[in-house]
């Protein structure tokens, strides 16, 4: 184990995926440091969501490597990747509509994830307290017994963030967390995200530049599956290539 391997939380190297010859992600390399908040921007179709899909195992890479601490993620199953400490929020809110907010959070509680573990899972004080705590963080403490189907769009997004928080992942990946929200919800969400990205590494996909500037440690600009530019927001913002393909519009 060399030092430079362990100093990064996530090392993506030469990552490539091709769909029938079309390279959606093409030789991508980047590293995420502990407690860093990395924002990915780029025009639609640049491969941002695909990168997240590749890291969390939803799409299988054609070649390359994704190392999370010392584990090679590309050979692991989705659930193993999650249990290793990588959490993922999808673009559209995906919660369990037929279950209550409480049950939604409970299913993400990091215990009893095997078949028999879940069969003999006990809803003890620890579970209840933790859910209560998270529910307060995500502004849903009064709605714990409501069916998730009855939540507003923004509340569903918060619930999904809450489901990630309860997993307490070391690396959190968020795909457009404020998309489709009202101005008020957006503000609350920004506040929420600022609070939760504190003690962990985060990768965020976002289009809202104000929001990006607010939270980003570093920014990666993707274009046609490749890195167009990378660095601090100030540097990226003034990169002529970036202005041409993305910010200029």
């Amino acid at each position: 184990m060399s030092i430079h391997q362990t100093s990064f939380v996530l090392s993506v190297e030469d990552l490539t995926v091709s769909f029938d010859g079309f390279k959606a992600v093409d030789g991508l390399t980047f590293y995420v440091e502990p407690n860093e908040c990395r924002v990915m921007i780029g025009p639609n179709g640049a491969g941002k969501t695909t990168v997240l899909d590749l890291i969390c195992g939803r799409t299988r890479a054609t070649s390359g490597s994704v190392r999370f601490k010392d584990q090679e993620l590309l050979s692991m199953r989705e659930d193993q990747i999650v249990l290793a400490g990588v959490g993922r929020k999808f673009q559209t809110p995906s919660v369990y509509e037929d279950l209550s907010v409480f049950e939604n959070l409970e299913l993400s509680f990091p215990r009893g994830h095997g078949v028999f573990g879940s069969l003999f899972f006990r809803r003890d004080a620890e579970v209840k307290d933790r859910i209560q705590e998270i529910a307060e963080t995500i502004f849903l403490a009064d709605l714990l017994d409501e069916k998730a189907a009855f939540l507003s769009h923004g509340q569903k997004q918060w619930l999904e963030i809450g489901m990630l928080l309860i997993q307490d992942p070391e690396l959190l990946m968020l795909d457009e967390p404020v998309a489709g929200m009202s101005v008020a919800e957006r503000k609350k969400t920004a506040e929420l995200l600022n609070r939760i990205i504190d003690h962990r590494s985060v990768i965020v996909i976002e289009h809202d530049m104000g929001f990006v500037e607010d939270i980003a440690t570093r920014v990666t600009v993707l274009h046609q599956g490749k890195t167009l530019s990378e660095g601090k927001m100030d540097k990226v913002k003034n990169d002529p290539k970036v202005i041409e393909v993305y910010l200029g519009h």
């Binding site: 769909f19 959606a24 695909t50």
Partner: peptide, 9 residues
């Protein structure tokens, strides 16, 4: 099946 295409999901 035998002849399905691989698609981007």
């Amino acid at each position: 099946g035998l002849f399905a295409l691989k698609l981007r999901k």
